[in-house]
Computed example of a mutant assay.
Amino acid sequence: MAEDKENQFWYNMRTGAVERGFQSPSVDRVGPFANHDEATHALEKLRANSAKWSEDDARDDR
């Protein structure tokens, strides 16, 4: 069953708003998220992922 991305939640990086469905241009959106709460914490998730990837890259460079 394909995911219904039009009804999932997205975080708008330009406005900081949580949106349901494709309300803003894709360049401004990150997601999709399963629920409103996950989308609300999108920046925290992005920062955590970025830190993990940086650590992984540094470990790979050794």
Rank of each mutant, 00 (worst) to 15 (best):
G16Q: 06
S24A: 15
L46E: 04
R14D: 13
R59A: 14
P32C: 08
L43K: 09
W53I: 02
D57K: 04
E3I: 10
S26F: 13
G21C: 10
N7R: 13
N49Q: 11
G21H: 08
F22D: 09
N7Y: 02
R29W: 06
D61W: 09
K5A: 09
N49R: 10
R20V: 01
V18H: 07
D56G: 02
Y11K: 05
M1R: 14
P25R: 08
E6R: 14
A17L: 12
K5C: 06
H36T: 00
G21L: 08
R20G: 01
E44M: 04
R14G: 01
A34V: 10
E6V: 08
W10M: 03
E55F: 00
M13H: 02
N7F: 00
A42S: 11
S26V: 09
G16L: 07
D4N: 14
G31Y: 05
R29Q: 14
R59E: 12
E19K: 13
D37L: 09
G16D: 09
D28F: 07
A48K: 14
L46N: 01
R20D: 05
D60L: 12
P25Q: 04
H36L: 11
A58L: 14
N35I: 00
N12D: 15
F9K: 01
K45R: 11
S50V: 00
N12E: 08
W53Y: 07
D28P: 01
R62W: 11
V18N: 04
K5F: 14
L46G: 00
E44R: 08
K52A: 07
E55D: 09
R29C: 11
S26G: 12
D57H: 02
K5N: 10
V30G: 03
D37K: 10
M1E: 12
A34E: 11
G21S: 09
P25A: 06
N35M: 02
A58G: 11
G31K: 04
R62V: 06
Q8P: 03
E44G: 05
S50F: 00
N7L: 07
T40V: 13
D28S: 11
D61G: 12
H41K: 10
T40S: 12
L46A: 05
K45E: 05
N49C: 01
G21D: 08
S26K: 15
D28N: 15
D56W: 07
S50I: 01
M13Q: 13
D61K: 14
Q8K: 15
R62P: 04
M13P: 00
V30S: 07
A58R: 15
S50K: 08
M1T: 04
E44N: 09
E55W: 03
D28Q: 11
A51G: 03
F33G: 02
S26L: 15
A48T: 04
N7A: 05
E19M: 09
R47A: 10
F22W: 13
T15V: 12
S54H: 02
H36Q: 11
Y11E: 02
G31T: 03
D37V: 07
W53K: 05
N35Y: 01
V18G: 07
E38N: 05
T15G: 09
D57Q: 08
V27H: 10
N49H: 05
D28G: 01
D61Y: 12
F9Q: 03
S50C: 06
